[in-house]
Design a protein around this nucleic acid. Sequence first.
DNA 1: CTGAAAGCGCTTACAG
DNA 2: CTGAAAGCGCTTACAG
Lengths: 328, 328
Amino acid sequence: MVTLKDIAKKAGVSVMTVSRVVNGNQSKVSAKTAKRINKIIDELGYVPNYSARSLISKKTNIIAIILRKDSKPDNPYNARMLSGIIPFLQEKGYYSMVVGLDNFKEVSRHLKSWHAAGAIFLGLFEDDVLSIQDEHDIPLIFTDSYNNLDTITNVGIDDYKGGCLAAQHFISKGHTKVGLATYAIDHSPISKARFQGFTDTLKKHHIEINDEHIYNDHSPEHIVEKALKTDITGLFITADILALDVMEILKEKGHLVPDRMSIIGFDDLPYGKYSSPRLTTIQQDIDEKAKVACDLLLNNMDQKLPSKNYIIDVKLQIRDSVKDYSTV
Amino acid sequence: MVTLKDIAKKAGVSVMTVSRVVNGNQSKVSAKTAKRINKIIDELGYVPNYSARSLISKKTNIIAIILRKDSKPDNPYNARMLSGIIPFLQEKGYYSMVVGLDNFKEVSRHLKSWHAAGAIFLGLFEDDVLSIQDEHDIPLIFTDSYNNLDTITNVGIDDYKGGCLAAQHFISKGHTKVGLATYAIDHSPISKARFQGFTDTLKKHHIEINDEHIYNDHSPEHIVEKALKTDITGLFITADILALDVMEILKEKGHLVPDRMSIIGFDDLPYGKYSSPRLTTIQQDIDEKAKVACDLLLNNMDQKLPSKNYIIDVKLQIRDSVKDYSTV
DNA sequence: CTGAAAGCGCTTACAG
DNA sequence: CTGAAAGCGCTTACAG
């Protein structure tokens, strides 16, 4: 390993002088010396040792990207977020350490041990949010949180509006009996908001939705089974992945989508473009979400800005999985 | 920040004693002292500072996961690989730093600055392989490489066999005129191997394939346009993403898949399960690839094993995008 | 414009 | 079983 000392020795100067050149404080070094030192640096292939640097500066340029351990390996949502975050941060001189952690203690240990410059959380860390924030004065950006929103900086999407849009679409297409499938509604405020937006809008239009038409289940088979027993014509499914699986099951059973059952998903994952019929869904802009999260992180690096909840808009992506009864 | 010194002071012992307790060398510390120290560690929330540790040990527990900067953000292949690698390494006490780097110089700087314990390369780093290896004596695992295979440790898949399987499937289904679409065949040995396997197998069965039926193009529109001018009944497309787009274009133009054109893809991305018709494709086991890469990395950590090229098998995943002419 | 001193938090190697 | 000394590679703060 080549160190400052090696360079200094070869250049016949002090370690300090080399350090200044390496750090671009060239104004404080004579141009001639700087040039000579730079040449030697190139020759010897010197690069600064981040461990030594951060030991003094008490800061690294590591950003912890924190997922939950149980987040599905091939979750396309997380994948898109990572793909948005990592190159962006790197561009700004920060390096992303992706890690799966489940609770406050693990997060805290991790941030301290690595002396992370900041962290972005993907997934739910509801209960721990405040304790994490108390113990660290580095920027912490949460995503899709619904708790403690006045004390943390969060980037979310308008889940409630998404639910509304889905309901409105069904209504505008003449559907009068529709249902909803979701999962983890009890402990996922996201699912709950989508659910609320959907049912509130239906109620506003005097369309009833009762428990028989609400499926809180992660099994597409069960959902299909239960839905087919009713006379609903449409199903709002709060995640594309589940929506696509439900469509598959329906097709397998010989029930046409959307003729027998219309489907609206949520997320607009790339899968939906290739499905048959192509999936009508609520689109969330994951790339935008990633970008906003990074911006917030970087802006909070130098000065601590007041916490704020950023909501990214969603929109209806109309494709072919909803039947039009309005002109019949 | 709580340091060893703080603990030592509070416990009335030397820093050395605390260090031993932290590192589990409890045998060398009296049980009583150890217990007292551990209690204080818990109370004060002490965690070791990795920067300080690695400054001495000249090693970190950082694994650099190196992608090319130009790798598509939402590339599902990379996403799956990352999802396979990151939790696995974390389980073993290593942390993944995901970074986009394009050439030897960047890679070298990165590995040195961070004092990485190892690196896994996703994507092509053909020309630089040897220089990178020369400069670092940490385990470097490459994936999908075709050059310098006798001097590096690589994990790949049997691309050639994949091409063979595709050709055999067409043949077994009675196709006599088929084509191939790929891209970057000139500088992607992967595409080339798939191409070779395909054409070699056809030749073996005395089925001709001429330039008119080979489309080296990344535009699905162009591919469809050119293919429809010929009388081929099937198209082997060396990447699912492209295959799915081609199917879409064909459908848009009113040409049925597989009635007018059969399609075989490559990769078996999750998309293919939802497409209509569901995509027949060559399946590569990305999770297995990730696992093998990690295993190799870890095994090479303590002792340097001889370089080896590991080939993971591929298989034909039959679904609905190939028409059967054999019984007609 | 340049440098000597001190120290970041920890571990290695030695001494007792 | 315990500790004092030295040092990892670098930067901060000071002196000249």
